[in-house]
Design a protein around this nucleic acid. Structure first.
Lengths: 244, 244
DNA sequence: ACAATAGTGTCTGTGAGACAGTATCCC
DNA sequence: GGGATACTGTCTCACAGACACTATTGT
């Protein structure tokens, strides 16, 4: 951010209308062979736009409580789900004069991946309705409030895009997982089967994971458990190699 | 954006402090074997933070004049450079209580690629100083105002990252160019040489460009002229192919 | 032994890197 | 012909896809 556009930069140069500033979150979870998005039903109080409609969790930036945008996103997510340690990454911002009937508004959207245990659909006694909705194709079945349909589509596109060449979907799993489980979430996100041998080679070659001294026991051969080697996201090698 | 956090959603639920909202632009150009970033020197009027320091071009959102964030970015860019048709893409947002001494502020940052002819360094008669500064490594030599150093670094990372697998840098060229010229801007952006044969195969295989019925004439064999096939950005093929 | 899933080996095809060779212009 | 740059051909190597094979558990 920079200087005022006003020609006279007086001491009260900041005295002009400001857009509404909010943060919204597209939170994903993988369960039962599907991808789910967290939604919140909007209140019906007078003055509320889109009453009773489903929308992304989020809300206005609180200049007192929120130190920065990410803190604001974490606070909103915690208020809706109780989740605290989720993987969070900025997705982008949507701002225009018309997206909110209450006035010029800009929202900073974050992208969250939740790992099991995933907070249940029927949340506690508070009046607010929170629900997971299954992803179908490039969106969610319900038509959402504001421009949230468009935002969900963008988030899905980002998630699927990065799934092709990063370790992103690993954050949909608990911290310890087998390679089969990892492959499985990749398949859920991409909605297509992957080849086992190629997947394993790739993941191990990229040093995405480190083996633990543990195995997942079942009624078959035990599977090696792994955890992510890096906290964040690891990229698979790409093109344009350095000439030797 | 969604509902107010206030428990009582009265008719004046919007009556609480809002952060400052601005748009900044990281505008790149390629010239003389180098990448350049557009900078603006900050004013010295009382109340202005970082007086006399270099910063990214940008400014507050004008809720009357700007229809949306991108329109705001285009307006700012046009005011500083006169350029109108640049390639523009959202980079991200930076917002916190401390990044601007004037208060809680959030900026929406856009990423611009300018093609020749590039507006000169010594711009018209207005008092504002505008300059192109060469990229060195992962940043610019000058220490910028606000958190703009960090933003420039993020923009460079994005530009270089996408250069590895998209047609992005083509927007640093005029609409008609030869493959050698295209390779050259890739090399400027990545700051490393690329192999000619591999580059050409890749670009042509991805159907990134279409040949024109024209040639660039010089004191040697004329070179085929091309233009981009798509208006936006084309992706080179990546990994995890569909099983047949 | 059998079911079930974990994990490996091998073949093949694709495409990038390397590099030399050929093509076509101006002078 | 010489200089310069455009463009192509060929070899090699890395790696993903395909698919079958082996490994190791519980029942």
């Amino acid at each position: 951010m920079t200087k005022a556009t006003r020609p006279t930069a007086s001491a009260s140069a900041l005295d002009f209308p400001r857009p509404l500033a909010s943060v919204d979150i597209v939170a994903f979870a993988a369960r039962e062979e599907r991808l789910w998005v967290l939604l919140v039903r909007r209140g019906r109080s007078p003055g509320e736009p889109f009453p009773g409609r489903w929308a992304l969790p989020g809300g206005f930036v609180d200049v007192v409580r929120d130190a920065d945008l990410e803190a604001c996103a974490r606070r909103k997510l915690q208020e809706k789900t109780g989740v605290t340690g989720a993987y969070l990454e900025p997705l982008g911002s949507w701002g225009s004069a018309r997206r909110d009937p209450r006035g010029w508004s800009a929202t900073h959207v974050y992208f969250a991946l939740l790992s099991p245990p995933i907070p249940g659909i029927a949340e506690g006694g508070n009046a607010e309705e929170v629900a997971w909705q299954a992803v179908e194709g490039a969106a969610v079945r319900t038509h959402l409030a504001f421009d949230h349909d468009e935002i969900v589509t963008a988030a899905l596109q980002r998630l699927r895009g990065k799934t092709e060449y990063t370790s992103l979907p690993a954050h949909l799993l608990p911290s310890e997982f087998t390679l089969s489980e990892l492959q499985h979430v990749y398949e859920i996100v991409l909605a297509r089967p992957l080849e086992k041998s190629a997947f394993r080679t790739r993941v191990l070659a990229a040093k995405l994971v480190v083996p633990l001294a543990k195995y997942r026991e079942a009624a078959n051969r035990p599977a090696q458990l792994y955890r992510l080697r890096e906290r964040g996201v690891v990229y698979f090698p790409r093109t344009f190699q350095l000439p030797r």
